[in-house]
């Protein structure tokens, strides 16, 4: 869990040098705001200057960060520091070696960067004793769950495990939306958020990938397959991705069925697929006969052309292909 999402200790936030590292926009925004607020708490008259690193030049930086006559407080936010030029980076380094009292410097860096100077910047800042706020994209489900829990807590409520997973299912993985939904739910449900409360305000699933649809199709679950396909089309999953997922699912089963039974770990090298994929396909093979698989391979090949412009209506082509695949599977 990123420190930025939680209210951190004041002593850390009042530091004269901050490094906000990462590219998750919401977290970055919050970390910057926290740093600025902390500086304002010390000196409410601080003047805030926000600049993109690409627009910043060494002389401007020098002017901004030089001691002033009445020593009023200043907060300098340097955004997109991954695009910093060599000269500006040098100027920043020399400032780090000799910081000025009353100036709070907040450097926002994505963690990447093309030039050597930009790549070296985070380490230099760390060495100079910057307060670091990590704002990386949340990629794991567990991280998102923790984020939702922290959001609800921030809003002054609590949420149970069922509520967390229901909310993630319904809203998706965009942190801004999750955060908004969490605070809204907390306010609406009077502090205690559970699955029922989430269901009352959010219906259906937010995220259906092509693979989810394809899995239901090859499993032969017609109702679920059609439902998830419609959802996927509704939320704008590209047709080509769904068609590719169909093709991948069918050919995986065909390959595994052609290879016969065996230990997935041993077959992985020969088939060029990861063992978990083979194991899953071995479970799905049972419902499929060889002629059905052959026909299905033709169906997905035609579908592939159809979603790339051969069909007048790719939505219809996808639905028809899904129904044809289901029919091919069920024909014995």
């Amino acid at each position: 869990m990123s420190s930025a999402a939680k209210p951190s200790k004041t002593s850390k936030n009042a530091a004269p040098l901050h490094l906000v590292l990462g590219d998750e926009a919401l977290l970055v925004e919050r970390a910057v705001r926290a740093a600025v607020d902390a500086a304002r708490a010390v000196d409410p008259t601080s003047e805030l200057t926000t600049l993109r690193a690409s627009e910043l030049t060494a002389p401007v930086l020098l002017e901004l960060a030089s001691p002033s006559l009445f020593s009023e407080g200043r907060v300098i936010v340097i955004e997109a520091a991954q695009d910093i030029g060599q000269d500006t980076a040098d100027a920043l380094q020399s400032y780090l070696a000799d910081p000025v009292d009353g100036v709070v410097m907040v450097v926002v860096h994505s963690g990447g960067g093309r030039s050597k100077a930009a790549k070296a910047l985070p380490n230099a800042l760390r060495k100079a004793g910057a307060a670091v706020a990590e704002c990386n994209k949340l990629t794991k489900q567990s991280e998102r769950e923790a984020f939702v829990r922290a959001e609800v807590k921030r809003a002054g409520g609590s949420i149970d495990a069922g509520g967390v997973s229901a909310l993630l299912d319904a809203v998706g993985s965009d942190l801004r939306e999750l955060s908004a939904a969490a605070s809204q739910l907390t306010a609406d449900s009077g502090g205690k958020v559970d699955e029922q409360a989430v269901r009352r305000y959010h219906r259906g699933r937010a995220e259906v990938s092509g693979f989810v649809v394809a899995e239901k199709v090859v499993a032969g679950d017609e109702a679920a397959a059609m439902e998830s396909l419609r959802w996927a089309l509704q939320i704008g999953v590209p047709h080509v991705l769904i068609a590719d997922a169909f093709a991948d699912a069918v050919r995986t089963i065909a390959r595994v069925s052609a290879a016969g039974r065996g230990n997935p770990n041993h077959m992985a090298g020969e088939l060029g697929m990861p063992p978990w994929k083979i194991r899953k396909a071995q479970g799905q093979v049972r419902g499929w006969s060889t002629p059905a698989l052959r026909e299905s391979m033709r169906i997905v090949a035609t579908l592939n052309a159809e979603v790339k412009g051969a069909a007048a209506d790719p939505d219809y082509a996808l639905e028809r292909a899904a129904l044809k695949l289901l029919a091919a599977r069920n024909r014995r």
Partner: peptide, 12 residues
């Protein structure tokens, strides 16, 4: 039609 070669060839 720009079908992925592998998909087209395997179907064939």
């Amino acid at each position: 039609w720009n079908v992925k070669p592998r998909i087209a060839v395997e179907a064939m």
